[in-house]
Design a protein around this nucleic acid. Structure first.
Ligand SMILES: [Mg+2]
Ligand SMILES: [Mg+2]
Length: 329
DNA sequence: CTATCGACCGAGTTTA
DNA sequence: TAAACTCGGT
DNA sequence: GATAG
């Protein structure tokens, strides 16, 4: 039994509980446990044998017990029972971009839709509109989401993603409205594989930048097109996200958009404890709103009394503690 | 034991 | 138009 | 379901 297999079981438990409308915090607990287990450097089977599971933050008595059950039997009774409660098609429907747990549950309960195919038929027939919160636009979006699910690919090796990202950067650089441009996300963190390409631009005039971005020749599909944030799918099914911020927020946006998500949350938690607030526009005093940093990434960390942390280390694997103690390698 | 629950925000849609 | 809701992003 | 207080 591998860590990935155990993680997958808990992730699925989370998905099913969510569709069933369970307590969101319980759902999150399973989801977090799945993520923790997936990222463990140590073998979960060994940890279970040594009875050290509960030492891991986020793993409590209940999940530790379930891990032991999985390790011992290869399955989790709760998981099997939950799977029996809902048609397997609902989990597939959850994979459709734009379909979250609410909509999945809604169409299932009200129309008995329990597969992607049935969902497609219903949307085409216009039977979804009229459901609370769903109109004609939502039907169209669902149909598009289904096509997307069939064409979008998974994570991309860094070696493939880098040249693709550089090509986009080169194209957008031509625009006079573009001041600074850089990659962000897992690409900037130099992960072995990346889930999407994230690009950050500073511009005093974002509209033409966004317009050009969503109309690049390689763009196959426009997922979102706003004034500060847009997302597209390019050639072979890779998602590209673009964020445009004012020049004075470059550092803050770079920090935010580089992540990781966990790293960001830890930083923001820390900020709260210091009476501060962090977002992609800067570091602010929580009470007065006074802006303390934002133009440079280094000053974002400095505002929290930390040295700048290299992107490759920003995974919330202890780098924040290390930075605070001045023990960064 | 029990209240609380990771931080913050943009886009899109529906509803009031 | 604004608020509420859902979804998705780090 | 986990955990801080
Ligand atoms: Mg990304
Ligand atoms: Mg992204």
């Amino acid at each position: 039994m591998t860590n990935a297999q155990v993680a997958r079981i808990f992730a699925e438990v989370a998905d099913i509980l969510e569709i069933l409308g369970e307590n969101p915090y319980r759902v999150q607990a399973y989801r977090r446990a799945a993520q923790i287990i997936e990222n463990l450097t140590e073998d979960i089977v060994d940890l279970a044998r040594r009875d050290e599971l509960e030492k891991i933050p986020g793993i409590g008595a209940s999940i530790a017990q379930k891990v032991k059950e999985i390790v011992a039997t290869g399955r989790l009774k709760q998981h099997e029972e939950l799977k029996a409660k809902i048609p397997p098609g609902l989990l597939e429907m959850l994979q459709i971009p734009g379909m979250g747990p609410k909509k999945v549950l809604l169409v299932y309960k009200r129309l008995g839709i329990d597969s992607v195919q049935k969902l497609e038929e219903a949307a085409k027939a216009g039977r979804l509109r009229g459901l609370p919160g769903m109109g004609a636009k939502t039907e169209q979006n669902i149909l598009r989401g289904i096509q997307l699910l069939r064409s979008t690919r998974g994570r991309l090796p860094l070696g493939i993603a880098l040249p693709a990202a550089n090509k986009i950067v080169a194209e957008l650089k031509e625009l006079p409205q573009v001041e600074r441009i850089t990659t962000a996300g897992s690409l900037r963190r130099m992960k072995e594989t990346i889930g999407d390409i994230d690009i950050l631009i500073t511009s005093p005039d974002p509209k033409p930048v966004m317009d050009r971005f969503v109309s690049m020749p390689m763009v196959k599909e426009v997922l979102a097109h706003g004034t500060t944030k847009s997302s597209v799918i390019i050639d072979a099914g890779t998602q590209v996200d673009l964020r445009v911020v004012p020049p004075e927020s470059f550092g803050a946006a770079q920090q935010y958009f580089t992540g990781s998500k966990d790293h960001n949350i830890r930083l923001r938690e820390l900020a709260i404890k210091k009476g501060l607030k962090i977002n992609e526009y800067g570091v602010f005093k929580a009470d007065t709103g006074e802006r303390l940093a934002g133009e440079h990434e280094e000053e974002m960390y400095a505002a929290l009394d930390m040295p700048w942390i290299p992107p490759e280390m920003r995974e919330n694997w202890g780098e924040i503690e290390a930075a605070l103690e001045g023990r960064l390698p």
